[in-house]
Amino acid sequence: MSVSAKTLDQNEYFYGHKACAGCGGSLAVRNVLKVLGKNAVAVLPAGCMSAVGFNFPQLCFANNAIISTFAGTASMLTGIEAGFRRRGIKDFTAVGFAGDGGTADIGIQALSGAIDRNDNIIYICYDNEAYMNTGIQKSGLTPFGAKTTTTPAGQNIHGNIRPKKNMFEIVAAHDIPYAATATVGYMNDFLNKVEKASKIQGTKYIHVIAPCPTGWGIPVSDTVDAAREIVDCGLWYLAEYENHEFKINRDPKTFTSVEDYLRKQARFRHLSEQDIKIITDSRDKKWEFIRKNWN
C-alpha cells in the first residue's frame, strides 16, 4: 500500500521544535519519522534540525534521537546500527537527517564510507541549498547565481559562481542499493521513496529539496510552492537509482518558466538575463542527458 496522508502514522515524533515558521527541513524530518514510525533511531548532526530540536530541557523528538558531530552523521549511524544489532534488537531503522553542508561538504567522507560498507541505514539529505543555521553561507549544494552571505551579489560577482554538486549521482556512483531525489513539495512521491527505502537492505540515500524561507527570501507560506516549482521548471528532478540503473520518475513535456521560479526568490533577484540563460541552458543540457540515458 502506498503512503499517503490517510495511511500515515498519526503520531507526531518531531514536535514543539523551534524551527522558523514554514521550515522545509522540519517538514521533511517530521514526515519521514511518520513513515518510519516509533522504532526509528534518528541521528542529526550539528545543523538547523538539531539546533531547533535538542535544547535541554526542550527535547522535541518522541523517538530515540541523537545529535552527531557535524561530519559524523553516517559514521554514528553505522555505530548505532551495529550496536542495536548486537543487542539483538530487530525492529528499528537507523535514519540520518543532514543538511546540504552536512552531507555534500563536511559529511561526504563519512557518507561515502558508510555506502562503501553498505551499512543498513537510511540517510536523508534535506537540501536547503546553503548553511542556513549559521546564517545563509554558501555550501557545495548552493546553486549557481544564488546570493548568500559569503557569495554576495555585487557589480563584479553575481552570487555563487559554481553550480550545485550532484550528490545524487555521486552517491549512485558508489553503486548504492537505493538512492532517490525528492522534494517536500511533492510529499507523496517523497514519502513513498522513504517507505521503499525502509524495506531495502543496505545503504539508502534520499536527497530532498527543503526550501528555507529565510535563506531563499520567500514568504513563509510559500515553502511548498517553491518546492514544487523547482521541479516543475526542471531545475530539480524526481529520480531513483536502483538495481544499478537510473530512473526518472517524472518527465514533464513542458517546463514552467525558470525565470519565474528565480525571480520569486530574493536570493536570485539580482540575476541578469544572461545569468538566467546560463541556468536555463544547463537545465536543458541535463535533461537532454537524462532523457537519453536514464529509464
Binding site: G16, L59, N64
Partner: peptide, 16 residues
C-alpha cells in the same frame, strides 16, 4: 550524562 527522556517539552511556540 547527555541523555534524557524523549519528547520532553517545557515551552510552547504560540507567541511566534
Amino acid at each position: 550524562d547527555t541523555s534524557f527522556e524523549a519528547g520532553y517539552l517545557v515551552s510552547v511556540n504560540s507567541g511566534w
